[in-house]
């Protein structure tokens, strides 16, 4: 008798192997999708951090800061005044940060923690050198990276004998 087709054992073995391979491939694709999503979020956060840091640092470096004060318009609002007569606002909302005309909109799952803008002074005998720092710290955290800070930490050294901030 001529025998065509597959035996039952061959079929079961084939299906079992195919099921194992498909399960592995599905797991790999889910891992890759998750990795892509996390990397995408991280890239966006780092780009925004870089842009905001650059904007603020450049403004502070290019123009001499002479004073800063609360705006009293919003909860967290500061106006920075410069020697050339210009002034720039820093606004920190729940879902955005605005510095001058640059707006940083937060991505999903990101939150801004309490910003800190403060002065630190180190008493020095030499009055002609920098002895103080203006610190602008805005921590930004994301759910996917709970231990990483995507915010800014800007330190601006100045001489308190020349300007009072």
């Amino acid at each position: 008798m001529k025998k065509n087709g597959f035996t039952l054992v061959e079929l079961i073995t084939t299906f079992a192997l195919a099921a194992v391979i498909i399960t592995i491939l599905v797991n790999i694709s889910l891992i890759l999708k998750n990795t892509y999503h996390k990397s995408d979020i991280k890239t966006k956060l780092l780009i925004e951090q870089a842009n905001l840091s650059k904007k603020i640092n450049l403004k502070l470096l290019e123009s001499s800061l002479i004073s800063y004060n609360n705006c009293n318009d919003y909860d967290i609002c500061y106006v920075f005044n410069f020697l050339n007569g210009s002034s720039v606002k820093l606004l920190v909302g729940d879902t955005y940060i605005k510095f001058d005309n640059y707006v940083y909109e937060l991505v999903d799952g990101t939150k801004i923690e309490r910003p800190v803008i403060m002065n630190e002074h180190v008493p020095l005998s030499d009055l002609s050198v920098n002895d103080s720092f203006l610190v602008i710290k805005i921590p930004i955290k994301n759910n996917l990276y709970p231990n990483k800070d995507f915010g800014i930490n800007i330190v601006y050294p100045y001489n308190s004998n020349e300007i009072t901030l």
Partner: peptide, 22 residues
């Protein structure tokens, strides 16, 4: 590469560079 030479850190180093030179 995410952890190397970020913009934030380079500005920090610039402050330190200015201090060392001064």
């Amino acid at each position: 590469s995410y952890n190397y030479n970020t913009v934030e850190n380079l500005y920090s180093l610039n402050n330190i560079k200015e201090y060392i030179i001064s």
